[in-house]
Amino acid sequence: MPAGNVAEIRKYLEEVIAATNAGKMDWAQANPTTFFWTSTPPRGRLVIQRVEKTVPRRLADGRMIATKVVHYVFQALDQNGTAQFSASGEDIDDLNPLLENLYGVAETSMSRKGLEFLKSILPKS
């Protein structure tokens, strides 16, 4: 991917993180490691997923051990569920910390929603 495009993606991701932190984007959880946000009206979806890989690594003494590596995958889907844009922290190393940040704020957003629901059903003191 050209460097100019990476810079543009970074800009959009930072906007998404800011909007989520401001409570303007409510994320939902599809499974334990994937969050998604659907636009209103529903024209598309954003998906952020945490992917864990086990890769072999050679130690100094020549032994091989299995090491866990984490990267994040970001996708923009159209309303038919077709991926129109996809970026992986595995392919673009520079993007991985930002994607990790986005995953974190999406997770916090979900958790905040859960806490708000819990608060809403508790008896008022």
Partner: peptide, 21 residues
């Protein structure tokens, strides 16, 4: 096990999640 869907409807929202995992 890390991509076990929270619900069947939610699985269709993230079509390639299982593959990536």
């Amino acid at each position: 096990s890390k991509v076990r869907p929270s619900g069947q409807a939610k699985e269709t929202e993230v079509p390639q999640a299982v593959y990536y995992a």
